[in-house]
Design a protein around this nucleic acid. Structure first.
Lengths: 331, 331
DNA sequence: AAAAAATACGAAAACAGTTTCGCTACCTCA
DNA sequence: TGAGGTAGCGAAACTGTTTTCGTATTTTTT
């Protein structure tokens, strides 16, 4: 492998000068700069990043952390979406992305081993002390979904999303609108519920507490179970706003099972717009989380933070209503 | 940050000795070994990986490459599944995983910049010269799905999968079994088709070429379009084996649209067992690709290859039939 | 008891860059 | 003409490890 000394020799200059050329220092003449660059090009010289990192203390590496025992990881469509967008943007800013596992010595030490410039915590579980230890360190972090102290947070405007959902249903003529809420231990769950209440209030609809059910998890089983409880009500809802698409799919299943038709008999709105949403039958109307924007914003904020610029503690990203086939006007 | 010199000073030995302790050299006495380790523990010393990499030429970093313009990336459930399994296993072997983008200088140079010990090419597009350049270099690679020269390849036993599908349908009493094939430019497409033919032959069913349709893509639109052509046949099939779940979902849509019932009127078998499969309505019977096994095997092979052990060029991973609701015995 | 072998350790070079600081040569201006 | 300034470059120190090889000490063998 050819190194900086070879380049220096070939160009008839010192390694210091080559280094300066490569790092765009101004104190080198145009003539030598050109000569050096030409040789670099010719021999295909590639600076050794380990050596560079050793002397500059910057690795241009960003760590990706996700709580392992949550078992969500890459396979969850929402997170892989924001991760993908994050990756694109952070790469544009010149970094590469490395996964940080917590094996043996914990996230913080692993970050220190790899000397990452910053980390993106994709799925945070605050019960995980390995994670809070990382958050509390002086490594620059950003995260989504779960707030922790002053760690910069970017996530969807859940309240606004709920408003979109409820307004849509109200416009279709619905008045008995139920909500299957996420676990209220999560801010997403809380905020979506608040938005739901606000939406009803806006429309002058009194909230019937029997129409609000808290689900134990963000999964389809939960949606199925909650929907069944709603269907057993003496006066069941004509529309249901569900806190996530997976649960909405469970709810649709429950409705079908009772011989009712989703859309015709009961309208459903989900939240997320995961890939599945457009493939269900009928296709699911939902509130789309802008994963691209969330990921991109996270990358920009992290970069600023690394460069010691001041950044917002919270950034809300607007959601959008995607109208498909599960919402119809009330007959 | 505390470095190896500090440890050496505190322990009253040389840095060489500390290094030897940390790397499990035998030539250091138990007494000093213990003393050094104790101090390392106490002060929370973490070896600098850049310095280490500089001197050993090993980074313990594995690059992940996927053809970017294919636009599959993390969000595709199949690939994120094998990637997740790969990651777990390779981490167990002591590596970390870094994404390699091809920006500016191409995959190969990016790999050289980061000095990765090996790379896993997740989605290969052989038209991409940046990729073949990497394959042709002396960096250790493994890949899945797309064969290239002697690069070790791990993927599902497509033929065997097709056999499972066809046998299952035959057992249910079907004789007119169609196949929506993948693009025959892909080996997956070819092999699944071959398995299909073999399955029919086994059952003594003569193949009706009008029941085999090649789809242009592995997506749901393709499945929808191909299924419609099958339905227009004078004598349509009673069962369809579709080359992937997404396309199977498109096919189901087409069947529904015609007022027919999936399962009752026409049985469907997919391939992949993506997350969606269990959520469709009715739930999709499919051939499960063992993503965990594929990912894990890839990791082990790559590790061996890095250690200059001999490895198999091709490894086939068995598939499994997952029986759900889209296949019923013929009435 | 002397020779040979084994054990435990350290000095120093090597890995491939960056950065500081000083030196020379040239320019500018009063 | 001489003082002061600046542009362009290089010597050398520095980053934090690993590894080779030599040496002193201890143990084993004859």
């Amino acid at each position: 492998m050819v190194d900086i000394r070879d380049i220096a020799r070939l160009a008839g200059v010192s390694t210091a000068t080559v280094s300066k050329v490569l790092n765009n220092y101004s104190e080198v003449s145009d003539a030598t700069k050109e000569r050096v660059l030409k040789i670099v090009e010719e021999v295909g010289y590639i600076p050794n990043s380990s050596a560079r990192a050793l002397s500059t203390k910057r690795t241009w590496l960003i760590g990706i952390v996700y709580s392992e025992h949550l078992n969500i990881g890459l396979e969850h469509n929402y997170f892989s979406g924001v991760l993908e967008a994050f990756k694109r943007e952070i790469e544009n800013l010149g970094y590469d992305v490395v996964f940080i596992s917590g094996r043996d010595i914990g996230y913080l030490k692993r970050c220190q081993v790899r000397n990452v410039d910053g980390v993106f915590v994709v799925t945070a579980d605050l019960m995980d002390t390995g994670l809070t230890e990382l958050f509390d360190s002086d490594i620059k972090c950003v995260t989504t979904d779960v707030p922790y102290k002053a760690v910069p947070l970017v996530y969807s405007d859940n309240r606004q999303g709920s408003l979109l959902a409820v307004r849509h249903l109200v416009e279709l003529g619905h008045r008995r609108i139920a909500h299957i809420a996420g676990p209220l231990t999560s801010i997403a769950g809380q905020e979506r519920l608040e938005g739901y209440r606000q939406g009803l209030a806006e429309a002058g609809i009194e909230t019937d507490e029997s129409l609000v059910i808290e689900a134990p998890e963000y999964d389809s089983q939960s949606g199925y179970a909650c929907m069944n409880r709603l269907l057993e009500l003496p006066n069941p809802p004509t529309a249901v706003y569900v806190m996530c698409d997976l649960s909405a799919m469970g709810a649709m299943y429950a409705i079908n099972e009772k011989g009712l038709k989703v859309g015709e008999d009961i309208s459903i709105v989900g939240f997320d717009d995961i890939e599945l949403a457009s493939h269900t039958h009928p296709a699911l109307t939902t509130i789309k989380q802008d994963r691209k924007a969330i990921g991109r914003t996270l990358a920009q904020i992290l970069n600023k933070s690394i460069n010691n610029e001041k950044v917002d503690e919270r950034t809300l990203i607007k959601t959008r209503l995607i109208t498909r086939e599960t919402t119809k006007s009330r007959k």
